[in-house]
Amino acid sequence: MSRLVGRLAQGALLLVVLSMLVFVFAELAPGDFFTGAVLDPRMSEELIETLRLQYGLEQPLHIRYLRWASSVARGEGGFSIAYRRPVVDLFLPRAAHTLMLAGASMLLAWIIALVLGIAGAYRAGGWLDRSTLIAVAALLAIPELLLALLGILVAVNTRLPLGGATSLDYASLSLGARLIDRIEHLVIPVTVLALTSLPVLVRHVRTSVLEALDAPFVRAARGHGISGRRLMLAYVLPAAANPLITLFGISFGGLLSGSLVIEGAMGWPGLGPLVLESMTNQDLHVLLAGILGVCAFLWVGNLIADGLLVLIDPRSGD
């Protein structure tokens, strides 16, 4: 328990330091939100100057940081100049979409990987194992971006919708129709994202199960005539769980990168495009929220993995 509190404090501290770093780096980078506006013929020099004053961009660095921090403390998470509203209003629905996409595809990928990996390792060299390995090698050679393009092609040639998380007439739909609409929009992005993370997962599941099958105590159990489902459930899987949970912890990073590519390519209204946009137009507070959000996500993933490790093997806690 006290360890959890310690980890939480550590994480919070990390986020604070990170936010300061982002402020400093943004200060070092040339220009601010209004740099691009100078080129706009409708914006006069004076107008831009007033706007800069209005948004407090002329203030010294530490004042700006404190203003941002107090805004975070008020629960607004800063202010987006581009959208003229508090960052939370933008951030939360986007983050929810990214979580939905990442969570659903992670679930899907792990289920498939566990089934294929365990089944393949149990009958290593069998037809299922071999075809899985071939499929995985092929999948590994297709980059995320091209997989996303294939997804788009599929969407164009089927009735499945693409772009956005809901249809335009979502608000007018009945509850059941809304659910179906959401699921229809999720199908292709989730499938593609799951496929991008699948190869690594399948390979890891397969090798850890193979290693567990080769462990002395599993051999001994086999020698005692224990086999089939009982062997797998009671002996092999617990032994294989450890490396898999570690993998689960570090797979969040790859998932986020993959999700960014797919959000960008398929017009999924997640965090990725928002962060990208905030970078190109230097909407600092949105950018900060994005970076901190991504870090928090990674960190929570690691925390979950560590927690799981402690749960199955209390000795690894110390």
Partner: peptide
């Protein structure tokens, strides 16, 4: 290895002139 490389890449790229 555990950080999302694409975010990292884009993050660093973003602080440089476009």
């Amino acid at each position: 290895i555990s950080l999302p490389w694409l975010y990292l890449l884009i993050g660093v790229r973003a602080f440089l002139p476009l």
